[in-house]
């Protein structure tokens, strides 16, 4: 074994594969953006997100990574929703990038327009991101989103998925999972919470557009998330990344557990992380330490009712969904496979 270069030895890291934000045995250019002292802080302090907001975290992670990938040549269009409301209430904005909010359902189209403007002005080095929550993406913004994909416009659309309309007070969206309590799917009746066998997977729908890049990411795995954003910014055309962002308010979880819950969602198989290029699945992020689905659900009051004896069938269904994800996306590492 050869000795590591002197510069790398000086790094305090605890094992080469460490999953912490910083501390990696990597060249500067491959380090996490969030570990750098001069990171862009695209979404700065003073915003009005709730304590422990996963979306605020996910947005800074993603946009900072995109800023690095583009050399700070970035413009973002934002759908109406929490992210918009908590970042730009007059007279304060928390964004440090050129940013526009137009409407709830048109972020993708606005971004397409910006990209077209940049092309027309001969400034194609300026890259465009559209972003929004799951409601603004999977429901009301879906038409525009599909249009952007269809035209293969040079836009990266990032959906911060917290699985319901949080800004309006936690109502069901087409990204709300089965059994989950929302203000419009209350845990009453024989099938409490959101109905099973409803909803849609926009990442898979995005793949069906044969766009160059689609990925899912989670706020708990910064290395994976930044890698995907960087990869997305490395290609042109329409790209889609969905970031899993727990919402303490809407999910009934502890603000301090936001990252932990995201980790549990992925490690239980409830939220598969994968990548696709040109319509084909190209990779999955394997589960590192598999945990029971129940452990994930127990962190959240929105699923509290599934642990009542009468609702055991719902718990079974949720477990089955995780098992199905694990099988479908081949999420478990094989013996000897390096993670």
């Amino acid at each position: 074994m050869t000795q590591l270069p002197e510069s790398q030895q000086k790094v305090k890291f605890y094992q080469t594969g460490t999953l912490t934000v910083g501390n990696r045995l990597l060249d500067e250019e491959h380090r996490n953006v969030q570990a750098t002292m001069d990171r862009s802080n695209s979404l700065d302090s003073g915003h009005r997100a709730c304590q422990g907001c996963g979306e605020a975290l996910g947005a800074r992670f993603a946009i900072d990574a995109a800023i690095r990938a583009t050399g700070n040549q970035l413009i973002a269009a934002n759908a109406t929703g929490c992210l918009e409301v908590f970042t730009t209430p007059y007279p304060e904005t928390a964004w440090s990038i050129p940013w526009i909010h137009s409407l709830f359902g048109n972020a993708a189209a606005v971004a397409s327009g910006i990209a077209a403007a940049m092309k027309a002005k001969g400034r194609e080095e300026v890259r465009v991101i559209a972003q929004g929550g799951d409601g603004g993406t999977t429901d009301i913004g879906f038409g525009c989103l599909s249009g952007t994909f269809d035209r293969n416009d040079d836009v990266l659309y990032i959906c911060y998925n917290n699985q319901a309309y949080m800004n309006t007070g936690v109502q069901r969206s087409s990204a709300t999972p089965g059994a989950a309590r929302t203000a419009t799917t209350m845990p009453v009746g024989a099938e409490p919470g959101n109905a099973f066998n409803t909803g849609k997977s926009v990442p898979l729908i995005a793949m069906a557009h044969n766009i160059p890049y689609v990925a899912t990411a989670s706020v708990h795995d910064l290395h994976d998330l930044e890698m995907k954003v960087t990869k997305a910014m490395g290609v042109h055309g329409a790209r889609y990344i969905e970031v899993f962002v727990p919402c303490p308010l809407g999910w009934g979880s502890k603000p301090g557990d936001t990252v932990k819950i995201a980790r549990m969602a992925v490690e239980s198989g409830m939220y598969p992380l994968f990548e696709a290029a040109d319509g084909e699945l190209t990779g999955v992020t394997k589960i590192r330490r598999r945990i029971p689905v129940d452990d994930y659900l127990k962190q959240q009051r929105r699923f509290a009712h599934v642990f009542k004896p009468n609702n055991a069938h719902q718990l079974e269904q949720l477990r089955a969904i995780a098992a199905h994800n694990i099988k479908r996306f081949d999420l478990l590492a094989r013996d000897g496979e390096e993670l």
Partner: peptide, 9 residues
Amino acid sequence: SACIGSSAA
């Protein structure tokens, strides 16, 4: 909406 984006840009 696209015009909103392009005009803003």
